[in-house]
Write a protein that binds this DNA or RNA. Structure first.
Lengths: 141, 141
DNA sequence: GATATAATTGAGACTGAATCTCATTCTCAA
DNA sequence: TTGAGAATGAGATTCAGTCTCAATTATATC
């Protein structure tokens, strides 16, 4: 059982930061949103609900969530960032359809292992990686 | 022997476009620049040489170069695009140092093959892919 | 509960990359 | 040489994301 709020609280405490109404609203929205969301989308969703949170705070909170390992910032080739929650999810990468925009997740342990090998060869300390494959999904090809 | 100008000309012809002084200047600069360059950098380099080309034209030309397969647009996590010439180069991906910004290229046929498998499984038609590994290089770790 | 202090927020200004507009200039085929 | 379409450049515009700063809020302590 994963507890995003607890995880976030622990992170905030370690940095002497506070869990505010706004941060909690962002966290909940991100965590219960399936898939990949955009910051701008988030401002609208939250506004339509009871809790409006300013754009500045949304960006600031997303950064905290990324930092705390709850959320991952990804680039799907749209010229702006997307975010997905990763706490309790296994690592995956993406197939991105250039026509309909659909995003298919995949996991491949072998690729991960080969990447680790490559880093070792260059004495490179991996922090994160992204594998994006762009093309056309089975419905759009 | 690779002939970028010829390749570009062929592409332009096929689209009923013209090889102008400005387009040629951009192509040459990109092609003879080693590694990964930024659009803004390009405006400065070209200005300092004899041939000044407007920002608009530089962006427009880079798009044509990408389209014609001479150049690849890549995201090195800097919040803006980089470009590298790929004509006559074997495909590669990148290790990006988060501290010094160094970019190390690598090629791995096995990873490529595994990616092809993944696409087949989802009946996904691959057009391009990017693999970026972020971390610290041997001098910065 | 009151208070102090440091953290937090929001509005809106700002930045920087990239795109768009449109009047002017250029290219090239006829 | 000329005309039509293509191309260019200056500057306006867009858009994501960041910054500023005055006003507000959370939490620890009294």
């Amino acid at each position: 059982m994963v507890r995003p709020v607890e995880t976030f609280l622990k992170y905030l405490d370690s940095k002497h930061l506070k869990l505010t109404r706004e941060r909690k609203a962002v966290l909940e929205e991100v965590f219960f949103h399936p898939g990949h969301l955009e910051a701008e989308e988030l401002t609208h969703t939250l506004r339509s609900k009871k809790s409006r949170v300013s754009r500045a705070t949304i960006y600031r909170t997303l950064e905290l969530l990324v930092d705390s390992g709850i959320v991952r910032k990804i680039d799907l080739g749209h010229g702006h960032s997307h975010y997905e929650h990763i706490l309790g999810h296994t690592h995956h990468d993406h197939l991105v359809c250039l026509k309909c925009g659909k995003v298919i997740e995949f996991t491949d342990k072998k690729i991960e292992r080969l990447q680790t090998n490559i880093c070792q060869k260059s004495r490179f300390q991996e922090i994160s990686h992204t594998v994006q494959i762009f093309g056309y999904c089975k419905d759009c090809r």
